[in-house]
């Protein structure tokens, strides 16, 4: 035996449970308590870039939408900068790049409005294609699931993306790519997340 390594151990995760909304989106739980809830406005009024909506469902292993899920989004601005001291520079005033998204209790559909992020500098000078990092919690999910959403109109950048290319199974890569469309003049990307089963979404241990 040598010296003792005096590191602490990470606190273990537990499921967010069915009532995650009480703590993190109390308005959705049915009551008004905070001056303002966090995470509804991801980019603020001054963000440059293309305004987009992203919508989808989170689908369980039986094929049913999960109706009590909460997602958190974390993204760079249109210039590829994260709003963080190590994010690569300054961002627009009011841009946080972080949002909370909950599903409709009846349909399981979720949606959020944001700007399309730019490419981000990756490891060793690589360039990562535009993407939004997502973290998914719900009843029955014991530890939050991390994934990334990429954009189908960025095929060239996606083909060079070091994270997409890390996925050995090329047939699974498309699970990370949202489909662009328009509705009432608004750009809408569709991104369904499949927790389990056919076309199971790629999740990352980050």
């Amino acid at each position: 035996m040598g010296q003792t390594l005096d590191y602490l151990k990470e606190t273990p995760s537990q499921t967010a449970g069915p009532y995650v909304h009480i703590g993190l989106a109390p308005g959705a739980a049915g009551f008004d308590i905070y001056d303002h809830e966090l995470g509804w406005d991801i980019v603020g009024p001054n963000a440059k870039g293309e305004r987009i909506r992203i919508e989808g469902r989170v689908i369980d292993g039986t094929g049913a939408p999960i109706k009590d899920v909460m997602l958190e989004a974390w993204q760079a601005n249109a210039a590829g900068i994260y709003a963080h001291p190590e994010g690569g520079g300054d961002v627009e005033d009011g841009f946080r790049g972080w949002g909370r998204v909950i599903t409709d209790f009846a349909s399981g559909e979720w949606a959020f409005d944001t700007v399309k992020p730019g490419p981000v500098t990756g490891r060793c000078g690589t360039v990562m294609a535009p993407h939004i990092n997502l973290w998914i919690v719900a009843r029955g999910i014991n530890i939050g699931l991390n994934t990334r959403m990429y954009f189908d109109d960025e095929a060239e950048a996606n083909a060079k993306d070091p994270v997409i290319n890390l996925i050995e199974w090329e047939n699974r890569r498309q699970t990370l790519i949202a489909t662009r469309g328009t509705r009432d003049g608004q750009v809408v990307y569709r991104f369904d997340i499949r927790i389990q089963g056919d076309n199971e979404t790629v999740f990352f241990d980050i």
Partner: peptide, 16 residues
């Protein structure tokens, strides 16, 4: 029904 069946893909960390 809410647990992935495939292994998580381990990612070396980047700015994201």
């Amino acid at each position: 029904a809410r647990s992935p069946r495939y292994s998580l893909i381990s990612l070396e960390q980047s700015a994201s």
